[in-house]
Design a binder for these strands. Structure first.
Lengths: 265, 265
DNA sequence: TCGATCGTATCGAAATACGATACGAAACGG
DNA sequence: CCGTTTCGTATCGTATTTCGATACGATCGA
């Protein structure tokens, strides 16, 4: 099995039952994802080369998605961008996911107490996905959006969840993760990661110092389901210009633990 | 032409070019939307009856969506719910939409000043869709989510945007809207709506008192594009238990106007 | 002015999706 | 306790639907 990349892109192409898979649907989602990945409007030709499809096939996929509202023409009229109808699915997902409904009031209270950025992330195989974000400062825009996906191994939330798994499961996840750093401080060697997991097992929460963003310190505690398996994490993030790591831990570790415990079953 | 319902569902089925439309893709999205609309996990049979499709066709659509991560099995194992991969598309949309990036820091500042709930909504034909939501209190959960869609005619943001359109365009939108109230205070008669639009043209911002939620007062100012056409609105929402309408207008009208002006081109 | 690329449009061939059918398991009700 | 329903899963021949080559006018840049 090839390694999944840390954003889970490989899981995307790994279809389930080939007998029951609608190929034109898979291709159409590849088009939608390619446009979203681009970062700027993409033309039919560009999309075709991104997803290795015939231009005609892309034309049909784009026309269909555009008709449904999941793609739109770019402002200037050239190229295509994700469409507003996507937010309707976002609404459905947020509304129907119990942990998000339960966590919302808890995180609002937590943010009032902590007065720092507070997030809820969801475990999704080798990555975490942010589902609730309560920011308080102007920050790096893409980094603070709902839906941001990061590898479990260098995020505090991911490590808090790894800490609750048995070693075989941890090995499996780390084995399928692409251990690539994104800052100079990212810990991405296996012994280092295992050390951070051991630390999280000791403290009950996990810590990451400048591992995803320079100048930022984050800690997180895991939320479990009825079987004790981790499903989400409560994050608290602050700036190193305002906190020492020791002070940050002492102040927010207990708060994150308490919130995560209240959300667990 | 049949009336679009106020949530824009009719626009969903109105395909573009039938020659270029992938029917299996349209059907699959109908399945995805049916599951999202449900509010609780749905079985294959239920979905089939919701979208008038053969059970086999639903089976294939669900298997495909599940393989891609846009649908998941419900917790107990019975039925299907929207999947985490939806949030990846959310991320793409939020990141690639310029007005959202521009508005984020402005709304954060506005919220600090106003200390009340602040939202950004996007115009989408006969409805508005919330794209940024900065809440401060525990509130009615579904009503405060990203992606919530409401008719333009009874929302303050919708009326603020209607106020910037010429009368023909206003008539067109109202004509295609389903004028149905959702609270006892919702103004849904044409003369009443036109009166509120005239009021918005006079004040520069629009007001809605308990029209979407009892006990809540909201005002909003429109954001325009380079041509002066409305594309979004800045909302400020508060509780009638803390504010009189007059005080609320005096305090927040200028703030919303200023923020919207800063975001317009 | 020329060449490349944009989005759009057409059409015959065959690959792909359709939908009827069937199965074991689990949940339900008498 | 057993009959009944509904769950998700699986199979397969048919023909509907998608494929992909091709072409067109418009627009943009060199």
């Amino acid at each position: 099995m090839p390694k999944a990349d840390s954003t889970g892109a490989a899981a995307r192409v790994a279809a389930v039952d080939p007998r029951l898979t609608l190929q034109s649907v898979v291709r159409t989602f590849q088009v939608l994802e390619a446009v979203g990945r681009a970062g700027r409007p993409r033309s039919l030709g560009e999309i075709a080369s991104m997803v290795s499809m015939d231009k005609s096939a892309v034309q049909r996929a784009v026309a269909t998605l555009q008709g449904l509202g999941y793609l739109e023409r770019a402002e200037n009229g050239n190229g295509f961008v994700p469409g507003r109808r996507i937010l309707d699915r976002t609404y459905d997902y947020l509304r129907m996911t119990p942990i998000i409904e339960r966590a919302t009031p808890v995180l609002i209270e937590l943010r009032k107490t902590a007065r720092e950025r507070v997030d809820l992330s969801l475990l999704d195989d080798v990555s975490i996905v942010y589902a609730i974000r309560l920011q308080s400062k102007r920050e790096n825009f893409p980094a603070t959006l709902i839906g941001r996906r990061l590898p479990v191994f260098f995020t505090s939330g991911g490590r808090a969840m790894l800490a609750l798994m048995d070693d075989a499961k941890v090995d499996d996840i780390l084995d399928r993760s692409e251990l690539r750093p994104i800052t100079q401080k990212t810990i991405f060697d296996l012994p280092g990661i295992r050390g951070k997991i051991a630390e999280a097992r000791r403290d009950g929460y996990a810590l990451a110092v400048e591992e995803s963003l320079i100048g930022e310190v984050v800690l997180a505690a895991a939320v479990t389901d009825a079987d004790g398996a981790p499903i989400a994490a409560v994050h608290i993030a602050a700036s190193l210009s305002e906190w020492t790591v020791a002070d940050f831990r002492a102040r927010f570790g207990p708060l994150a633990l308490e919130a995560a415990k209240a959300l667990s079953r």
